[in-house]
């Protein structure tokens, strides 16, 4: 398994974890949580309350941020001669980008249609949920991207490796 392949697995696991956290968060908000206060008559919150609210509402973002930091952290190579990325990795990456880009064509309209059908044409939704709808679509597309990479690596490099 080369470095690009390990990164694909790492990315896939992180995306799936982030999706799980987002689902828990949205389900928690919809079914159990504190209602979002009315915009017009809500009392002005203090600085601490704002910070606490922001942390409570955006904590699922912590995972992708940690993943990004870990991905960008330089690691020691197992074999110094071996390149990090070569033309097979580029070919696999291009295919994965194409697949995930095409998935956006279906996922985005699907997410918006489901929301509209659920709420009705004149229904309203707190802005926070728009953020999570788009973040959800983005994370699913990223998961598709990494999954395609993992599958392509398996397809291309499976078989006997004779030494």
């Amino acid at each position: 398994m080369n470095r690009a392949q390990k990164n694909a697995w790492f990315g896939l696991i992180n995306c799936l974890l982030a999706i799980t956290f987002c689902v828990f968060f949205v389900v928690g908000q919809v079914f159990f949580a504190v209602p979002v206060p009315g915009f017009k008559f809500a009392p002005q919150p203090s600085q601490t309350e704002i910070i606490v609210k922001v942390i409570l509402r955006f904590w699922p973002l912590v995972l992708p941020v940690i993943a990004l930091i870990l991905l960008l952290t330089p690691r020691k190579k197992q074999r110094p001669v071996e390149p990090d990325f070569d033309e097979l990795d580029t070919a696999i990456q291009n295919k994965a980008i194409r697949v995930s880009f095409i998935s956006v064509w279906f996922l985005w309209p699907l997410a918006l249609c489901i929301t509209m059908l659920k709420l009705g044409i004149l229904g309203v939704l707190p802005a926070l949920f728009y953020f999570y709808i788009h973040l959800g679509v983005f994370l699913i597309c990223m998961a598709i991207y990494f999954l395609t990479k993992v599958l392509l690596y398996r397809k291309q490099t499976e078989g006997p490796a004779d030494e």
Binding site: E82, E87, L88, T157, G159
Partner: peptide
């Protein structure tokens, strides 16, 4: 792979 400067996976494929 080391001679041609690619990964072993590329040679296998």
């Amino acid at each position: 792979a080391d001679i041609v400067g690619v990964t072993r996976q590329t040679i296998i494929a």
